[in-house]
Computed example of a mutant assay.
Amino acid sequence: MHYGPSGVAGQKAILTWAVHLSVGLLVLLWVVPTLGLLVSSFRTADQISSTGWWKAPFAAEQVLQVRTADPGTQVQEGDLYVIEGQLLDETQAEKIASWGTSSRDVAAYQPGDVAEVRGGGTITVGEDGAYRMENTEPFEGGRGQRVFITAMVPPELTLENYRYMLFDDSNVNGMSRAFFNTLTVSIPATVIPILVAAFAAYALAWMEFPGRALLVAVIVGLLVVPLQLALIPLLKLHLGIGIGKGYLGVWLAHTGFGLPLAIYLLRNYMAGLPRDIIENARVDGATEYQIFVRIILPLSFPALASFAIFQFLWTWNDLLVAKVFLIDATGQTTVMTAQIVELMGTRGGNWEILATAAFVSILVPLLVFFFMQKYLVRGLLAGSVK
C-alpha cells in the first residue's frame, strides 16, 4: 500500500525523525558540558586560561609567567653584575615566540631583544629560553625578575588537580567531610519520603474512604507550589518547635518538598496494577497491610526505584535547602555544593581546581544515572499508560 506525502505513513516518518533529532539534541546538550568539565579537570591553569577544552589534545600557544633567579645568584664579571639562567626549565615549551616584562604587554620583545629592568640593568632572553641580566650595580631584592613568555606548549594532562582535591592536607578534610555530609543528607532524604509516599499512594489507589478524591486534588495542587515560597515559613516552624538547623531539619524539608511528586507517581502506578490480584488476595483473607507488603511493593519496584533516583539526584545537587537548613560556621555539616561555592570564593582564579571539584561532585549522580537509567525511563512513564 502506498501513502502520499500527507498520508499517515509520511506523517509517522516525519514524527519519528523529529523525535530522534530532539533526543539527539538533548543528549548533545548534556554530554558536551560534562565532557568539557571532565577534560578541564585534568588540565593545568595556564592551559584552561589560554585555550578551550576541545583543544586539549593539541599544542597551543600560551603566555607563561616565570621568574629569573634571585639576586643572590648574581656573579661579577669585570665591572658588570650578571645573572644567567633558563626560563623554560619548568615548562614543556621548546622555544619562545615573544616575551615581555609587564603584564600590560606580554609580547613587547622578540627573542634576542634587550629590555630594561625595573630597578636598573637590562635583560636579554633568547629563543631557547636562556636569559642574561646585566647591571653596573649589584641587583637588589629578594625575588627574581618576572618575565612573561609566549611559547607553543604541547598538550599536558595531569592528576595534580585530583591529588589536591582528594589527598592534599590543606583541602582533603573539607572535600571528604563535604562528601560524607552530602551522603548523610541525601540517603535519609530519599528513603523517608519513599516510605511515607508508598503507604499514602496505596491508600489513595486501593482503599475507599471519604475525601480521597479531594486529597488527590490537593496533592496535584502541591506539585506547583514554588519551593522558595515555603522555605522561610518552614524554617520558622523548625525553629519554633526546637528542631533548629541541622540534619533533622533538612531531612524533613526534603521529605515535605518531595512527597507530592512521590505520592502522585506511585499512586498512578499502583492504580494501574491488575485489580484481580488485589481482589483475590482480599477474598483469601489477606489484610491491607499484607496486600501492600507482599503484592503492591514488589510489583511497584520500578516506580519506587525511579522516584528514588529522582529524589537522590535532587538532594545530592541541592544547594538552596542546604544553605537554609544547614548553616554551620565551623563547616561540620557543609555539603559538596556549598563547599564548591566556598572554593569559588577562596580560589576564584583557579579554574582547574573548580572544574575538578565540580566533576567530583557530579561523579556519584553520573554513576547513578548510567547504572539505573532504565528505571529513570520507567519513572517518566509511570502511570502515563495502562
Rank of each mutant, 00 (worst) to 15 (best):
Thr16Glu: 05
Phe139Trp: 13
Glu94Met: 11
Thr101Val: 15
Val172Phe: 13
Ala189Gln: 07
Thr124Leu: 08
Ala178Trp: 08
His238Met: 09
Phe257Tyr: 00
Gly4Asn: 01
Glu134Asp: 12
Pro154Ile: 14
Ile277Lys: 03
Gly78Asp: 07
Ser186Gln: 07
Val191Gly: 01
Leu265Lys: 00
Glu90Asp: 14
Gly78Cys: 11
Gln110Lys: 12
Lys323Ser: 14
Val114Glu: 10
Lys95Met: 13
Leu304Glu: 04
Phe58Ala: 07
Leu380Gln: 08
Ala213Phe: 12
Pro274Asp: 03
Arg163Lys: 14
Val283Cys: 06
Leu157Gly: 15
Leu231Cys: 05
Val66Met: 09
Asn181Lys: 10
Ile192Pro: 09
Ala178Ser: 15
Gly256Leu: 01
Pro233Asp: 05
Ser306Trp: 01
Leu261Phe: 03
Leu157Ile: 13
Asn173Tyr: 14
Ile362Thr: 14
Asp168Cys: 10
Leu38Asp: 08
Tyr162Gln: 11
Leu259Glu: 05
Leu320Ser: 04
Arg275Val: 11
Leu239Met: 07
Leu266Trp: 02
Ile340Phe: 11
Ile232Gln: 02
Val224Glu: 00
Thr124Asn: 08
Ala59Ile: 12
Gln290Lys: 04
Val335Gly: 13
Ala97His: 14
Leu297Ile: 06
Phe180Gly: 12
Leu204Ala: 05
Leu381Ile: 12
Glu208Ala: 09
Leu273Ser: 02
Ala230Gly: 04
Trp53His: 06
Gly221Tyr: 02
Met175Gly: 07
Val153Asn: 13
Gly383Ile: 11
Pro298Leu: 00
Leu195Glu: 13
Gly119Asn: 10
Thr122His: 01
Leu166Ser: 06
Asp70Ser: 10
Pro111Phe: 09
Leu25His: 03
Val360Arg: 05
Gly126Leu: 05
Pro302His: 01
Ala13Pro: 00
Glu77Val: 14
Leu239Ile: 08
Ser22Val: 15
Lys245Trp: 02
Glu140Lys: 10
Arg282Cys: 07
Glu94Cys: 03
Asn350Lys: 08
Met344Pro: 05
Trp53Gln: 02
Ala382Pro: 07
Ala355Lys: 13
Leu183Asn: 09
Leu64Gln: 10
Ile353Trp: 13
Arg177Pro: 10
Ala217Gly: 12
Ile219Lys: 01
Glu134Tyr: 01
Tyr375Lys: 13
Glu116Cys: 03
Thr124Asp: 04
Thr333Tyr: 12
Gly7Asn: 03
Trp351Gly: 08
Leu319Thr: 13
Leu235Ile: 02
Ala382His: 03
Thr34Ala: 08
Leu265Tyr: 04
Leu261Asp: 02
Ser361Lys: 06
Pro138Ala: 09
Gly272His: 04
Leu204Lys: 00
Leu354Arg: 04
Ala338Gly: 01
Met175Lys: 12
Phe369Ile: 15
Leu376His: 07
Met270Arg: 00
Leu326Gln: 02
Met372Phe: 15
Ala9Ile: 13
Leu157Arg: 10
Gly7Phe: 02
Phe310Gln: 07
Ala205Asp: 10
Ala151Thr: 14
Thr330Ile: 13
Ile277Arg: 01
Ala382Met: 09
Ser186His: 08
Leu297Ser: 04
Leu15Cys: 11
Gln47Cys: 01
Leu37Thr: 04
Leu157Trp: 14
